[in-house]
Design a protein around this nucleic acid. Sequence first.
DNA 1: GGAGTCCATAAAGGAATCGTAAAGACCTTC
DNA 2: GAAGGTCTTTACGATTCCTTTATGGACTCC
Lengths: 235, 235
Amino acid sequence: MARVLVVDEDPQVRRFLGVSLETCGHRVAEAENASDGLRLCQGRKYDLIILDPGVSDMTGLEVISSIRRRSAAPIIVLSNRADEATKVEALDRGADDYVVKPFGIGELMARMRAALRTSRPLLKPALVVVGDLRIDLSERRITRNGRDVHLTKREFDLLKVLASTPDHVISHHALLKAVWKTVRGDGVTYLRVYIMQLREKLERIPSRPTLIVTEPGVGYRLKTSGDQLSKGDGS
Amino acid sequence: MARVLVVDEDPQVRRFLGVSLETCGHRVAEAENASDGLRLCQGRKYDLIILDPGVSDMTGLEVISSIRRRSAAPIIVLSNRADEATKVEALDRGADDYVVKPFGIGELMARMRAALRTSRPLLKPALVVVGDLRIDLSERRITRNGRDVHLTKREFDLLKVLASTPDHVISHHALLKAVWKTVRGDGVTYLRVYIMQLREKLERIPSRPTLIVTEPGVGYRLKTSGDQLSKGDGS
DNA sequence: GGAGTCCATAAAGGAATCGTAAAGACCTTC
DNA sequence: GAAGGTCTTTACGATTCCTTTATGGACTCC
C-alpha cells in the first residue's frame, strides 16, 4: 500500500515496526542510523518516513532538516523525549508528527494513515460512518449496530468505491471499471444485482433504500447526509 | 497569517486559544458547539480547525466526519480523552492531528504550523453558488437552503449549462444542442417543459421566477444577482 | 378587437431503466 | 466428490423518466 522507511537505532523497534507494517500490506525498508537513512531517502522512493532522531550520529534534530531537504515524504518522529521544546523543534524542522515512546501501534498506524492521506491529492476517509453503519476501509470491516456484517469481495469492493467519495454520484462506468477492471458485456446488469445485495445487507428497509441511492441513467451514490444542515430553515 | 476556527465548549479554552493565536497574527473565529462549528466551516473560509469533540451536541466523534465533509482544512483534535481507540477513530474520521488536554501551547502551535505547512490547495472548481442555491458539479448534487434537491439527468444537464455561464443569456438552440446533442423537431417545446420542471423544484415561487429568467424569443438566463426586490409587481 | 406569436402549465402514452428472484458456473474446503 | 459459498447470467414485473400533445394566458401588431 505505501512504501515506508524506518530509521531507528534500536533493532527491536525496527523489527516490531517492520512486522506490523508489513502485515498491513506496506513495504518497509530499514536504516539503523542517520547516514543510512539519508542515503536511502533520496528521491521519491518512499511515501512515509518514521524516524527516531534520539541517539544518532548527527547532532540532535539536525537529521530531520536533512531528510526534509531530500524528500517531500511525511516524517513521523518517534522519540522518547517528551519535553515540549524538543517537540516544537522537531516539528518546526519539518516533521509532520511527533509520537512519544512507548507508543501504541494502533495510534501510530492511524497517524500514518492521516499523514498519507494529506500527502495524496484526494482526501479519502479511512472510516465512513452513516447512522448505525460503520465502514472501516482500512480494516476492511463493516459493522451495523456494532454487529459485524459479512460482505463478499465484490460487494466490499463496490462499497469501497462508493464510500471513498461519499455523497458523490459515481457513474456506472466508473464503478464497473473500479470493481471489475474490464467492462465486458452489459455490465450495468451486474451492478444492479450487487447493489441489491448490498442493500439487502446494509439498508434498514432494502426495498426503500436511504443509503445507497440510485441516480437513474447515471449511477449510484452513498448518502451520508441524513445531515440536517438546515436548521435555520427560513422558509 | 491564517484563519483559524476554534470549536470548544469551554469558554476558558476558547479565550486562551483566541488570545494566543491572535498574538501570533492569526485570525480567530469561535464556536461553542458542534452545530455552530458546522455552520461556520462551510466553504473555504478557514485554513485550520481546532476542535474538541468531547462534549458536544452530536454523538461522539461524528462531528469530525461532518466537518471533514464540508471543509478540506486541516483538523486538529483537542480532547481530554487519551485512550488509543478514541485517537484512532478520530484520526480515521479525518482528523489530521490529535492533542490530549492539558496541552502545551507551544506544542499546539508547532503542530498547527506543521499542519498548515502541508495544507493542500484542494482544487474543486466545480461549484457554483447562486443565492441560496448550490450546484456542485463534481458531486452532481444540488442543494437549496442546505436541503437536497433531486434532479433527473436531463434537468441536471440543463441546469449545468445555465450555471456554467451565470447571468448570460443562453439561446434555445445552444441549450438544446448542449443537452440533447441532436435537435430534432420543435425542440423549444421540450425546453419549456424542462425549464418549468426546474423552476418547480428550484424557485421560491415557481410562477414568478427570479432564478431562471426567460428572455422572450432568445433563450433563458440563470440570474445570480437577485434584485428580487419589488419590481413590476403589476397585477 | 381579432389574429398571431410566444410562453406556461397540465396530463398521458411510450421508452428506457431499475429491482428482484432464481438458476447455472466456478471455486474452494473438507 | 459432495457441500457450501461466491460470481455471473438471464428473465420479467415495476418504476421512473422522456417525449409528445393539448389548452390557456400574455403580449404585440395590425
